[in-house]
């Protein structure tokens, strides 16, 4: 791996240019916790590694427009230490903080988690549930794209070859809102999610659900936004009937594979269990 060129640009333009020039031979690196493993295992053989952590704005969290903008390379540890973010979006922070060990938390980022394009990425269902938007920039300028539109299939993304994920935009949080993310792993830590589920809910004063987004991970080629599951909750007080409808919608959306981490049947069952549990936690957090 010593034959690899290491670049650490300090502006987005510089990074975009380097990425374009490399013509597919470069890989962007945030925390590197997936990339270095792939390089070591021979599954990634970049000629150039472009470290984006020295670019201003990629490593911080800003309050903006009533919501937050999170630099794509911000580490999980930094997210976990941001009190205001944790209060507004506990589900996103807990999802990010579930990735790997304390050591991995010191490096791993939301941007890297999304751009690794694994269907089992922990933070992605939480971001999708939150209606988070990606800010990307390439030679054709800057654009915004919903998180659920970024992954196409395992390892594949909808970004152009020279586009860089700069940040995530989290929308303003209405009163009586809450989110949660849960995953199932055989151990207590260190595993890849067998299934993950993120839920974000907003209630009215009477405790009726006004808005709901439900996303599940590791049950399809990409993390899924299950619109039917959200619709099942809207207008309800999360009674058994509504939850059962959500279960049915989640189960219908799951198209999992059986692999070393779990069987398809098990994954579908657990997706429903976790979505339900996450919804109830989100409601509690919303104070509804």
């Amino acid at each position: 791996m010593s034959g690899v060129d290491y670049l650490s640009p300090t502006t987005i333009a510089e990074a975009v240019k380097a990425l374009g020039q490399a013509g597919g031979g470069a890989r962007l690196m945030a925390g590197g916790t997936d990339l270095l493993v792939q390089m070591r295992g021979g599954r990634a053989k970049p000629q150039t590694v472009i470290d984006i952590k020295r670019i201003p704005g990629l490593m911080d969290i800003r309050a903006e427009g009533g919501g937050f903008v999170i630099g794509a390379a911000t580490s999980g540890a930094v997210l976990g230490e941001h009190a205001a973010l944790r209060k507004a979006w506990p589900g996103i922070v807990e999802a990010a903080n579930l990735i790997g060990s304390t050591q991995v938390q010191g490096r791993a980022s939301l941007g890297g988690n999304l751009c690794n394009a694994s269907p089992a990425a922990d933070s992605v269902p939480a971001l999708i549930a939150a209606a988070a938007v990606c800010i990307v920039e390439g030679s054709n300028g800057r654009r915004e794209i919903p998180v659920e539109k970024v992954q196409i299939s395992p390892g594949k993304m909808s970004l152009a070859p020279d586009e860089i994920l700069i940040a995530f935009r989290l929308p303003p949080r209405p009163a009586k809102s809450g989110d949660a993310y849960l995953r199932l792993i055989p151990r207590t830590e260190m595993d890849i999610a067998v299934v993950g589920a993120g839920v974000s809910l907003t209630f009215d004063a009477s405790g009726t659900c006004m808005a709901a987004r439900v996303s599940v991970g590791a049950v399809a080629p990409t993390a899924l936004l299950v619109e039917g599951a959200g619709m099942a909750l809207v207008g309800s007080k999360l009674d058994e009937g509504a939850l059962a409808k959500m279960d049915a919608a989640v189960a219908a959306a799951c198209k999992p594979i059986s692999d070393k981490r779990g069987t398809a049947e098990y994954r579908t069952k657990i997706a429903c269990v976790l979505a339900r549990r996450a919804a109830l936690i989100a409601r509690e957090r919303a104070g509804a």
Binding site: P186, R187, T188, E189, M190, D191, I192, K260, R261
Partner: peptide, 12 residues
Amino acid sequence: SFLDYRMPVASD
């Protein structure tokens, strides 16, 4: 790998 060959960790 230690990721998928799941030996007990401290929190287990």
